[in-house]
Design a protein around this nucleic acid. Structure first.
Lengths: 401, 401
DNA sequence: CTTATTAAGTCAAATGTCTTGACTTAATTA
DNA sequence: TAATTAAGTCAAGACATTTGACTTAATAAG
């Protein structure tokens, strides 16, 4: 009956795929350009005026776009610009970190409407899952308080946590949150919330956030170097987040550096974890963030020494990212205190020579991105929004989620 | 009239895009699985039997697929498998190297039908262009001799040459083929041949070849580490060659390594160029390839020393590729003599620990790929074939070339 | 002030591609 | 010999985009 080997093939598409894509293209165009008339959209997407009119009408019925006042610009009938309706969709984002978990609710344009956090006691995932589910429930009810009907327009739950995922662990590496790696988190959250759950590592989440509302807005090729408790790269390639074969692409923190005859992962040299170790600080201390900001501002010797050393590794990381990914720009972001990020950026320059030194370059090679403890949770929430509304190859194909 | 800033948007799609994609999906499925019945194709692509029938009929009319003898496999009407017709399409591939240029003609399934080469005297691009155009013309006429009607089915001219492209040059770096970088090669070849011209760097071409007929066949996430006169990585991400924002993604040869207090590009340490320098050999010597193969086989001390040193850098390169791209597998390929490649692979193992060490891994982390002086030209030719027949996001969209 | 021109947007019919459901064909199994 | 299973076809239907003519509403020109 069944032939020996399974048949491997890509999926076909049909009318639904076509119109789904065209709807996404409209939303994307409005997101990038702000507000556009039907005629503008038709020209930009190469679709006909009539098609655009049909789709816009449908999007308006669905509450995703709305018209603005007509504008007169020269001869001809005035055009009616359309814009995205922020309340058209919502998503909840969740950052699971070592000691805390943060949740936000965002709208279609990426504005944060609700934020809340909870401590993660060392009870491990099974206890932690309860805390997390309560936190999500709390954010959902607060969101409902801010905007009615939000539940109907909730497109999913995005989760960000440190990677890598599914790797044969070294057994006792405290940097890897081993217990969480083995826990069936996505299944638990799906069952516990009834929402579609989208998991990414925190660097990817940071990149997703930068693409929706930050420095990567409208860019199709950008890499976010994320410096948090760990370090990683979030990859925007061809206009989509690139995850790799197993969701671990960009885990640059695992890259081994050779110096002084031994090899060390980048993560042990240039990350907040390494800074905490350098300062003998307790990562669980809730005031640590503020204190490090103050220390950075006051020119603390310990901080400066770490910054100098980390800058060398970051400079090289950026060089490597430019060399391998050839992005339009590299964005330095993180959950580090702002003053520290500023010091880092100052210390990183000048950049190493690379293929990024092109004639006619427009964007800077390195740009600062968000450095806010909440940016990862925001990026987590941006995941489901992007999944639901951004133009993606997979979204055209049949049977794609 | 014109609004201030141009509107940026992705393109929409329509019926033509749909059917173009579905045709490509069929061809792709046949390429990967060998031969499939209409019912198999319908199941694999999630399209209906009827749609598949219509498309197969059309592909058969176009001479791209043909039916095989019906096979009985259990109850029910016997199925009629369809396969790709090799003579359904052809492409010419061109490798432009420092001292020679090679051209091949391949068919739809990637078989090389004609090969020819010519020396590139140091006269520079303007003289070289004439040699190249003559070579292409020669290959085309030989192809016409082998198969009639080939010109009608010629989908394009693929060109591979060392990158990077468009980078603000260091002025006098002999490794960069500076003069060729400035020459309007694509325009000249388009005008001189009347064909669509597709340019990629040689590592990308090697990856394209591996994907069509080599170790990356059917894989959606694979990286080819190409060791030739230079060194580079060809990236297959999400089933397509990834080129980066400027066509320079994967140029790992430009990566700077720090050791002994100074920085050196990887290309100066692990490439045939570095080997030639190590051996004080003349790269222009036509017998060099064979001689190095012999030296490698005979256990030459100089070769072995270079292999040991290069293996360290290659081991690290593979580690870095695994860490940043998270591919299903890494393929080591090149235009190096086979005996040398074998030595290198032996010397590279064991690999460094990385996120590629997963539970339930199926493919090996490192696989040997093609190591044939003609593989780059083959990959160059595979470019237009892939462009014309592989499922690609861009091919669905309107006005896409 | 009137008319021509330009551009946005709508209407209704046509087109193209996939889908649906019934049907035919041809094998194996009971 | 009849029932079952599966491949493949036929004809009608569904759906989204396209086409071309038309309406609306502004500015520019005479």
């Amino acid at each position: 009956m069944n032939d020996s080997r399974p048949i491997r093939a890509k999926r076909g598409t049909n009318h639904e795929g076509t119109s789904a894509h065209n709807r996404r293209v409209m939303i994307d165009a409005l997101r990038i350009n702000g507000a556009l008339s039907r005629a503008d959209l038709a020209r930009a997407t190469r679709l006909t005026k009539q098609t655009v009119s049909n789709i816009i009408e449908e999007l308006e019925r669905d509450g995703l776009v709305s018209s603005q006042e007509a504008v007169r610009k020269g001869r001809g009938q005035p055009s009616t610009p359309y814009r995205l309706v922020p309340e058209g969709a919502f998503a909840v984002g969740l950052q699971i970190d070592r000691h805390v978990t943060r949740a936000v609710a965002v709208d279609l344009v990426g504005s944060v409407l609700v934020r809340d956090e909870a401590g993660l006691s060392p009870g491990g995932p099974s206890q932690g899952a309860k805390v997390i589910l309560d936190l999500v429930a709390s954010v959902r009810s607060k969101l409902a308080g801010v905007v009615g009907q939000s539940e109907k327009r909730l497109v999913g739950l995005g989760v960000a946590m440190p990677g890598p995922f599914g790797v044969a662990g070294s057994g006792d590496d405290p940097w890897m949150m081993e217990a969480w790696q083995k826990f069936p988190l996505v299944e638990t959250l799906t069952a516990g919330t009834g929402l579609d759950v989208d998991l990414q590592n925190d660097a990817a989440a940071a990149a997703t956030a930068e693409r929706m509302v930050g420095a990567a807005h409208g860019l199709d090729h950008a890499v976010c170097l994320f410096v948090g408790y760990g370090i990683g790269a979030g990859l925007i390639l061809n206009g989509e987040l690139y995850r790799g074969a197993n969701g671990n692409a960009g885990e640059i923190g695992m890259a081994l550096l050779f110096a002084d005859g031994k090899s060390t992962p980048l993560e042990h040299r240039a990350s907040l974890a390494s800074l905490y170790q350098h300062l003998s600080a307790d990562p669980a201390d809730p005031d640590l963030h503020a204190r490090i900001n103050d220390l950075a501002l006051s020119g603390d010797r310990g901080i400066d020494a770490w910054v100098e050393a980390a800058a060398v590794d970051l400079r090289w990381s950026i060089h490597l990212i430019e060399t391998l990914f050839d992005p339009q720009t590299v964005i330095l972001c993180g959950s580090a205190p702002e003053a520290l990020v500023n010091k880092l950026i100052a210390a990183i320059g000048p950049l190493l020579p690379s293929i990024a030194e092109r004639r006619g370059r427009i964007l800077p090679r390195l740009q600062p991105g968000m450095a806010d403890p909440w940016s990862v949770a925001l990026g987590a929430a941006a995941g489901p929004i992007s999944h639901a509304f951004d133009p993606r190859f997979a979204a055209i194909l049949k049977d794609s989620l």
